[in-house]
């Protein structure tokens, strides 16, 4: 039950943090424009507190019911995880995605080559595969190594940033191949890689052609290539 408690407390803390950040940014003044955001912020704060309160109450009630549970329910983020497979990033430093990684995560099946493949994608996230999983819970096919989520997140973010900076075709081909490699958990044979690059080229150029030539969307282009 305590993982539920921890989840709810993280949820409440995030909501309250967002509310606080937005609250300090109310540098606007027209009366009609102040009412609504302020109302929303107040309600959010109340809901955040309610989530935390209900979680604590429920945890203490459950704690009383089954005595094997955690002794002090109010301690919040310090509680050790109880449910197998429901592990959290240490210290609660995690933003939402990291917390999200927990349920059902398994470190099984992380071969060396796979890690190497993900290294560049996950480079700006230090925790790529540093923890061994407790128990292989995934199905026979479902290899869900720990680095997969940060790698996927970093890859998508990098792709989105590169989209505007390097143009759609250049960033598109590179990121397309990187994603394909990530999904296959490794680059595979050179032949495979060649095919991947070919497919990426065709898809990216097709998208580029359709959007710029047919739909007249002025896509960002690479300065080097001109497309």
């Amino acid at each position: 039950m305590s993982s539920d408690l921890r989840r709810d407390l993280i949820c409440a803390a995030l909501i309250l943090a967002v509310t606080a950040v937005f609250w300090t940014r109310q540098d606007f003044s027209t009366p009609t424009d102040v009412i609504f955001p302020r109302f929303v912020l107040v309600v959010l704060a109340v809901l955040g507190l309610a989530i935390a309160g209900m979680a604590v109450v429920r945890a203490s009630r459950n704690g009383a019911a089954s005595d094997g549970e955690a002794p002090e329910a109010g301690a919040g983020a310090e509680l050790p995880p109880q449910t197998p497979g429901m592990r959290q990033a240490p210290g609660g430093r995690s933003a939402a995605p990291a917390a999200a990684a927990a349920p059902g995560t398994s470190g099984a099946g992380t071969s060396l080559t796979e890690r190497a493949a993900a290294e560049d994608a996950a480079s700006d996230d230090g925790k790529g595969g540093d923890e061994a999983g407790e128990e292989p819970v995934g199905g026979p096919r479902g290899s869900r190594p720990r680095w997969a989520l940060p790698a996927a997140a970093a890859l998508l973010l990098a792709w989105a940033a590169a989209f505007g900076l390097f143009g759609i075709t250049l960033s598109g081909v590179v990121a397309f191949v990187a994603t394909a490699i990530l999904i296959r958990r490794g680059p595979g044979t050179p032949r495979r890689l060649l095919i991947d690059v070919g497919v990426a080229l065709v898809v990216a150029l097709f998208c580029w052609a359709v959007f710029t030539r047919v739909l007249y969307v002025p896509l960002p282009v690479s300065v080097l290539l001109g497309i």
Binding site: A160, F163, G164, I168, G172, F211, L219
Partner: peptide, 29 residues
Amino acid sequence: AYLVPGIALVTMIGAYAVRNNPLDVVIMV
């Protein structure tokens, strides 16, 4: 392995095309 990057590419172009704004792609992700 091809479907996911394909969707990613098309949705990124789509997010961009809403207002022709590269920032929207980052916001989307």
